[in-house]
Amino acid sequence: MDAKSAEQCILAAIRAIPHGQVAGYGQVARRAGLPGRARLVARILSTHEIPDLPWHRVLRSDGRIAFPEGSRGFREQSQRLRAEGVRVERGRVRMPAAERTLDEAIWGPG
């Protein structure tokens, strides 16, 4: 997959995160068909200023906001998440359970 296609897949995966829900950078990468490319997701988000992109729904894998606490970005992301009904406590959101792979869904955990 070339860089432009990867970027489009990542942006589509971010747009697909439902209102009031969150996903980690790694989850977004997997949903975009790019497992292991969480840093690419972070880089793409840091360089885009697309008005309708729900960037605020993407967090670290442990549920923390990636911006430094107290920064403008931190405050904006917290406010946007709260406006969607997401509970943010001390800069952290409870992340949804990890998505199961197809093998796990069929055969059970490892």
Rank of each mutant, 00 (worst) to 15 (best):
M1Y: 10
M1V: 13
D2H: 15
S5W: 11
S5T: 15
A6Y: 13
Q8I: 11
Q8E: 15
I10F: 09
I10G: 09
A12K: 10
I14C: 05
I14Y: 04
I14S: 02
I14A: 02
R15T: 08
R15N: 11
A16C: 10
I17P: 14
I17E: 10
P18K: 03
Q21R: 03
A23T: 05
Y25G: 06
Y25C: 09
V28R: 01
A29Q: 04
A32N: 15
G33I: 05
L34I: 11
P35N: 08
A38P: 08
L40A: 02
A42Q: 08
R43Q: 12
R43D: 14
R43M: 09
I44F: 15
T47A: 10
T47W: 11
T47F: 04
E49D: 05
I50F: 02
D52L: 04
D52A: 09
P54A: 05
P54K: 03
P54H: 09
R57C: 02
R60S: 15
S61A: 11
S61D: 15
S61R: 06
G63Q: 00
A66Q: 06
A66T: 11
F67M: 04
F67T: 08
F67E: 14
E69Y: 08
E69S: 04
E69H: 10
G70M: 06
S71L: 07
S71A: 05
R72C: 05
F74G: 02
R75F: 03
R75A: 05
R75I: 14
E76S: 15
Q79P: 01
R80A: 11
L81I: 00
A83V: 03
G85A: 02
V86N: 01
R87S: 05
R87D: 07
G91H: 00
G91E: 00
R92N: 03
R92F: 03
M95T: 07
A97T: 05
A97D: 09
A98T: 15
E99I: 11
E99M: 12
R100V: 13
R100M: 13
T101W: 05
L102K: 05
L102D: 14
D103V: 13
A105F: 09
A105T: 12
A105Q: 10
I106F: 15
W107H: 04
W107F: 09
G108T: 07
P109T: 13
P109F: 07
G110W: 06
